[in-house]
Every structure is written in structure tokens, then in C-alpha cells.
Amino acid sequence: MKLKIFFLSVFIFLVSRPSSGEDAFPFIGLTPKGKSIEASLSKKKWKEKMEKSISYISQSALTSLERIEGQQRSPSFEQVDIGSSIKISLGLGTVVKGSIEPYFKLFFKKRRVQSIGE
């Protein structure tokens, strides 16, 4: 009897816990048809993906900007904004259930070398 009560208590506790999300970020958006959707992705995986994406885009953007700077082509702008989204597949192995596509923007600025007062 005591064992039954113990297992019942554990079962009730597990069922009544708030939905597990402490290790995952929720992603919220609308489909093209206007339906609201939510998905979860582990925080660790999210950080890895963002780090990779920002690194990749930064590398490409900065390399291109330095090339333009080196060739002295159109140096009149001092800031470049790049909008991007990353597509992260959700699912298990080859069974892909969907993807999340967060959008973010990166800002690149030209370094100034003049001293104060110039």
C-alpha cells in the first residue's frame, strides 16, 4: 500500500510539473497561412547555431568590405546592415518534422582612426 502511494505521488508530481522547457528556448511565429506555431530548441543547440551563423556571415561580410576598402571602391558609407535568417531543422535523424527560422540583423561599422578633435 505504501509503495502504491509512493508511485502514485511520483506520477502525480511528474504529470503536474510545468511543461519541461528549462533547457530549451521557445520559438514563436506565424506560418504563411496565418497560423500561430510554437516550437522548442535546446539552448545549447541554439547558441551553437547562432554562433556559427554570425561567424559565417561576419567572416563573409568583413572579407568583402575589406576587399572593397582595399580597392578604394565606394568608401562613402560607414555602416552596413545585413538581415539574415537561419533555418534549423527539427526532428530525429532523417525524420525532419519542421524547421525554425529566426531572423536577425548584423551591423558592421567602419573603424575610425582619427583622434579626438579631427
Partner: peptide
């Protein structure tokens, strides 16, 4: 280099029941 990553922009959204999360899709 002459250029550097000076910043970025991220966004948050609220689901229909008020759940907060990272904005994705549309």
C-alpha cells in the same frame, strides 16, 4: 581590419496565450 561587427538585432514575440519566445517564421 577597417571594419568590425558593431552590433546585431534580435526579436521576441508573444504567442496567442501570452507565451514569450524568440521570434521565428512570420
Amino acid at each position: 581590419g577597417s571594419w568590425y561587427l558593431s552590433g546585431f538585432q534580435t526579436s521576441l514575440a508573444l504567442g496567442l496565450k501570452g507565451k514569450i519566445g524568440i521570434h521565428s517564421w512570420g
